[in-house]
Design a protein around this nucleic acid. Structure first.
Lengths: 119, 119
DNA sequence: TATAGTGGTATACAAAAGTATAGTAACATC
DNA sequence: GATGTTACTATACTTTTGTATACCACTATA
């Protein structure tokens, strides 16, 4: 615990390691749609059609592809139910859940920035 | 002040406005290089060549283009000094400074995620 | 006079990302 | 048996993004 805190503080003080950590995060989020999907899943597990409806302008091709990427990167789990019609649910893993802090920070900044720009 | 807090809480509870705010942030950060540039500027104002050296693999074309975008979006200021050889400094605006919270959240998550994956 | 450093731009090209549109399989209801 | 629903995939295409390479103007120093 103590080591971890020291570790993070050290990384924050060194431009190179700081940039590395930002890039780690960036790689998981690459593209136009991963963050909107992540934001949508903050509100609980969702099905394919729910996400499609909630995220404006996304095509099923993109949604399918991006969900696959997020699954590969260990951000979401995919559960298939053998009901009629087939139901598939997407839900956060632990990594996905812990990402909430980042998205909340982005939401807060987005609101602030919008206020500043409109003012 | 009180209104603002209520406002943010409301937005966080509504998927649509939440997604909107995420997209506002996303638009300012579009592309591969803006976040690395922002992260690099966390450590104080920098000159063109400094940024070029600090950000691995970026070309001057991309650096120039992305800095211009960030300037247009009110994230950085550009100051030219008529010295020999011409010096140009890039520095955060208030919006840029307030963005530190977001980047720090990303850095922290990046480190955590890396630890989880390597474990 | 040749060279080097700063802060870029120009041109051409390659690769990646995203879009539009259509279609599929499985079933269940009307 | 026609239609609708869910969760996609296939194909072809356009747009955006990024790369490689070369080049410019300025000026101080050797």
């Amino acid at each position: 615990m103590k080591f971890k805190l020291i570790d993070i503080d050290l990384i924050k003080k060194c431009p190179e390691t700081y940039l590395l950590a930002v890039n780690d995060t960036l790689n998981v989020l690459a593209g136009k749609w991963k963050l909107p999907i992540m934001a949508s899943l903050q509100f609980g597990k969702k099905r394919f059609k729910d996400l499609e409806k909630e995220i404006p302008k996304i095509t099923p091709r993109m949604l399918s592809k991006e969900l696959r990427d997020l699954e590969i990167n260990g951000m979401v789990t995919r559960t298939v139910y053998g009901t009629y019609p087939v139901a598939v649910e997407y839900e956060f893993t632990e990594s996905g859940k812990s990402f909430k802090k980042v998205i909340d920070a982005m939401v807060e900044w987005g609101i602030e920035h919008r206020n500043r720009v409109l003012k």
